[in-house]
Simulated assay, not measured.
Amino acid sequence: MPRPGRPSEPIDLNDSDRTELERLSRARKSAQGIATRAKAVLLSSEGLTDTAVSKQVALSHVSVGKWRKRFIEHGIEGLTDAPRGGPPRRISDDKVAEVLRLTLETTPKNATHWSTRSMAQRAGISNERVSVIWRTFGLQPHRSETFQLSTDPFFVEKVRDVVGLYTSPPANALVLSVDEKSQCQALERSQPILPLMPGVPARQTHDYFRHGTTTLFAALDIKTGQVMAQCRKRHTSKDFLAFLNKIDATVQAELYLHIIVDNYATHKTKAVRDWLVAHPRWHFHFIPTHSSWLNQVERFFAKITLDIIRRGSFSSLPQLRKAILEYIDENNQNPKPFNWTASPEEIFQKINQFCNKLS
Rank of each mutant, 00 (worst) to 15 (best):
P4M: 04
S8T: 12
S8N: 11
L13Q: 03
D15T: 12
S16E: 05
T19M: 11
R26P: 02
S30D: 14
A31L: 05
S44P: 01
S45T: 05
G47M: 06
T49E: 07
D50N: 12
A52H: 06
L59W: 05
W67D: 06
K69D: 08
G75R: 11
G75F: 11
E77D: 13
G85W: 05
G85N: 09
G85F: 05
D94R: 13
K95L: 04
K95V: 15
V96W: 03
L104H: 13
N110F: 09
A111Q: 09
H113F: 08
M119T: 02
Q121W: 10
G124V: 04
I125A: 05
I125Q: 00
N127W: 00
V130E: 04
R135A: 10
G138Q: 05
G138S: 03
L139Y: 03
T146C: 07
F147R: 12
L149H: 06
T151D: 14
D152R: 01
F155Y: 13
E157L: 07
E157Q: 01
R160E: 15
G164R: 03
S168T: 11
S168C: 13
P170W: 03
L174Y: 01
L174T: 03
Q185S: 09
L187A: 00
Q191S: 13
L194E: 15
L194M: 11
P198Q: 01
T205Q: 10
H211C: 13
G212F: 07
T214D: 13
C231L: 15
K238A: 15
F240W: 14
L244N: 04
Q252W: 11
I260A: 01
V261T: 08
D262W: 02
N263D: 03
H267T: 06
V272D: 02
L276N: 00
H283C: 09
S291K: 05
S291T: 08
S292H: 10
S292F: 12
R299L: 15
T305C: 00
L306F: 09
D307G: 03
D307V: 04
S313W: 14
S315C: 08
S315A: 15
S316H: 08
A323D: 03
L325Y: 11
D329M: 14
D329H: 14
N331A: 12
Q333M: 09
Q333H: 06
K336Y: 14
K336T: 15
P337M: 08
N339G: 00
P344V: 07
E345I: 00
K350V: 13
K350P: 03
C355I: 15
N356A: 15
N356R: 12
L358H: 13
S359P: 04
